[in-house]
Write a protein that binds this DNA or RNA. Structure first.
Lengths: 133, 133
DNA sequence: GTGTTTGCAAACAATTTGCAGAATT
DNA sequence: AATTCTGCAAATTGTTTGCAAACAC
């Protein structure tokens, strides 16, 4: 009985999330959307984010530090979390993705998806590195 | 200047965590330890868990639902999270672990570790399955 | 004795919820 | 008209912190 109705706020949240290439928290998105719908509330942000997650339109990342983050990119990819600056970057690892699919066959529980977080120090936070920063 | 001093509470927490094969939350451990040190406080549990994590003696799991969980098993393994009952199980996938190591070489950020969560429906929650439940 | 750890309670951060009114169909 | 969605504020959950007393070295 629960029909989904259009909401401009929800559209805006999703649009903002897709536009940003980083992985914003609910509060980050709240700031963004507030520039357009100045009286939007944080509750609406949270409600719509969890709705979009359950619809499979976006993804939630729980990196272990601070607030959850959200990702509008549904293509298979992984995440790198810097344990110095806390940034979260996309990480494309095709060979790894293959291995995952293979791995899922061996499992007796039915796997529907997976999230991998790589932890380390990002190149910006690693001062003694002679690479093109 | 910060020397580590022995604490029976910390030992007990670690012991409990290693004994349990599941992945308890701070509150689960609080209940466990309370049976032995009846007036231990939840703050002590949290303080020691984060200390043990930073010492690398245990691991923290943030599965995306509810409280963080903790794992005393340091051997390389992965985790399966049931999105029906919320249980978290160990998942050994040797071929997958190899792929991870390979993947880490391709990354320009220095990776120090990784955590993978597989999501799905566990065999206990999947009723229409003709396996030995 | 010095420095670390504890229990307790209060503080804090992130997220969820109840409700009356506004928006969508 | 019926139902869903919103803004607001209060409630809830998970975790951290300040402090005086207890403990370890």
């Amino acid at each position: 009985m629960k029909t989904l109705k259009y909401s401009r706020q929800r559209e805006c949240i999703k649009e903002m999330l897709i536009t940003r290439k980083d992985h914003p928290t609910a509060d980050d998105l709240y700031m963004d959307v507030k520039e357009i719908y100045s009286n939007i509330s944080l509750g609406t942000i949270y409600r719509n984010l969890s709705l979009l997650v359950s619809l499979g339109e976006i993804r939630k990342l729980s990196c272990g530090e601070g607030a959850d983050r959200f990702d509008g990119n549904l293509t298979p990819h992984n995440h790198f979390v810097c344990n110095k600056c806390g940034c979260v970057k996309d990480l494309r690892l095709p060979t790894f993705d293959e291995a995952i699919q293979q791995a899922e066959k061996y499992c007796e529980d039915s796997i529907q998806g997976h999230i991998t977080y790589f932890y380390g120090t990002c190149r910006e936070c690693k001062p003694n590195k002679s690479l093109n920063d």
